[in-house]
């Protein structure tokens, strides 16, 4: 539990934080600390500098702007869950994902921006971000840069963020339809053994459009584009979903295999969770 030595800064403005980030060296951002602190305690990471964002209160918000819901990077899971904006509709998948994170203590401290930036391959929020087709706003001293969710996650703990950048905001369009998140929990960590987020828009009995994403199955969360295409325009039904989702696992290039579950099980469960998520999102 004894951290290696590092410098620590707790800037009070975003600009100050960005200057520290751009200053070179191995710099780590401390948001809720739910991933960073265990890593430091195990001495798996030895930053030169830790930049603590928690004094920058303007980074914590959930609000509606121009038909979009905007979430500040420092918003905790608990704050997000307390917001009216994600109670229903497509955002439901984000609410369910956030509610399934860790335990109450983790949800009171962990942040949305932290989860997305850390990009743990089994984190819940990234799947919801993909299904909602979020826009991620990165900020550096140069200014803002927007990145689509599908371009954001590059692999194991790696994202499109540059060393000089930090995630400032996540946004998604308020759209018609419903959302849902289904998860099989890894019993020890509470992370997703397999998680599926779905956003579905219905036109009567017909699926007008769907976005489905998986987490926990590969080195990065992924959208199931082929599956989405097969759903579009079809009549919603148990048989269709079984057929379309049955081979959902095939979209995963090299499914994770570890002591908690084999690749085969994860691939099979990808289909089950995807089907259940779609069904609930459509309902």
């Amino acid at each position: 539990m004894l951290l290696a030595e590092f410098d620590y800064a707790a800037p009070e403005s975003l600009d100050e934080a960005l200057a520290l980030l751009g200053g070179g060296g191995n710099v780590r951002i401390l948001a809720g600390g739910q991933s960073l602190l265990p890593t430091l305690k195990l001495r798996l990471d030895r930053p030169d500098l830790v930049v603590d964002l928690r004094k920058i209160s303007e980074l914590s918000y959930v609000r509606e702007e121009n038909g979009e819901i905007a979430i500040g990077t420092l918003t905790t899971y608990a704050e997000l869950l307390a917001s009216d904006f994600i109670e229903s509709g497509v955002a439901r998948c984000l609410a369910e994902a956030a509610a399934s994170v860790g335990d109450l203590q983790v949800r009171n401290l962990g942040t949305i921006g932290g989860s997305l930036s850390h990009a743990d391959p089994a984190a819940d929020i990234p799947a919801a971000a993909l299904a909602l087709d979020c826009t991620l706003v990165a900020r550096s001293e140069e200014g803002d840069r927007t990145i689509g969710a599908t371009d954001f996650f590059h692999g194991l703990w790696t994202t499109a963020l540059l060393p000089s950048e930090m995630l400032r905001e996540v946004r998604f369009r308020k759209a018609n339809g419903g959302g849902a998140y289904e998860k099989l929990r890894q019993a020890a960590s509470g992370f997703a053994l397999v998680g599926a987020a779905a956003v579905v828009e219905m036109d009567g009995d017909t699926i007008a459009g769907a976005r489905v994403a998986l987490t926990g199955v590969g080195s990065a969360p992924l959208r199931l584009h082929a599956l989405e295409e097969r759903l579009a325009g079809e009549t919603l039904g148990e048989e269709l979903l079984r057929d379309v989702c049955g081979d959902a696992g095939e979209a995963i290039e090299s499914p994770l295999s570890d002591i908690h579950a084999s690749a085969e099980y994860r691939a099979a469960m990808a289909g089950v969770t995807a089907r259940r998520a779609i069904l609930r999102a459509a309902g």
Binding site: P38, L42, D103, Q186, A187, A188, S189, G190, F191, I259, H260
Partner: peptide, 26 residues
Amino acid sequence: ALFEEAVYDRNGQLVTGTLMDYALPK
């Protein structure tokens, strides 16, 4: 019965070395 197992790999490394991998029930 359902959750806990200390797993060693064939080199004798404890794979379930933290509570992230050793499944203590909640």
